[in-house]
């Protein structure tokens, strides 16, 4: 059962990423439980988790948000590849940071990136999925934590 501090680790990791990488913190919207398939944004970075916990953690964001984020990071490459790269890096950073609380046995994969609004997310059966809307500037992304 996911504890509040654990969920908070992911949430804080995400908001902090924006603060550090783009000098402007993100805030979170109202969290809720995932029912069925979530509405996905254009790009989704997925980390598979194994070991102590199993499941997936993913960050899904619209192209517009990623574009602004790249600009804030002084990037000037706004290609499809760059978007994929960024969304994967965000997912990787959030999950990697979570090891601070989960420990070494929280094994995370190299990020994989899916695009399109109907990607097939490999949810682990029995995992509980929490959706945390991430609001940054006028944009909204989602962090989904789905762990046993």
């Amino acid at each position: 059962m996911l504890r509040e501090e654990e969920l908070k680790t992911f949430v804080d990791g995400t908001t902090q990423y924006f603060e550090v990488a783009a000098q402007q913190p993100a805030t979170i919207g109202s969290p809720y439980l995932l029912e069925g398939e979530p509405a996905m944004h254009d790009y989704t970075g997925i980390i598979s988790v194994s070991g102590k916990r199993e499941g997936v953690v993913y960050f899904t964001a619209p192209r517009a948000m990623l574009t602004v984020l790249l600009m804030k990071m002084q990037e000037n490459d706004f290609s499809h590849e760059s978007m994929r790269d960024l969304v994967g890096e965000v997912a990787n950073t959030i999950s990697g940071n979570a090891r601070r609380d989960f420990g070494h046995d929280f094994v995370i994969s190299v990020p994989s990136v899916l695009t399109g609004d109907k990607p097939d997310i490999p949810h682990k059966p029995g995992a509980r999925s929490f959706v945390i809307p991430i609001n940054w500037r006028s944009h909204s992304a989602k962090l989904v934590v789905s762990l046993t």
């Binding site: 504890r3 908070k8 979170i28 109202s30 969290p31 809720y32 929490f130 809307p133 609001n135």
Partner: peptide, 11 residues
């Protein structure tokens, strides 16, 4: 109120 306040609620 912020989204963080609702984390314990959703849990």
């Amino acid at each position: 109120l912020t989204g963080n306040d609702f984390l314990p609620v959703v849990l």
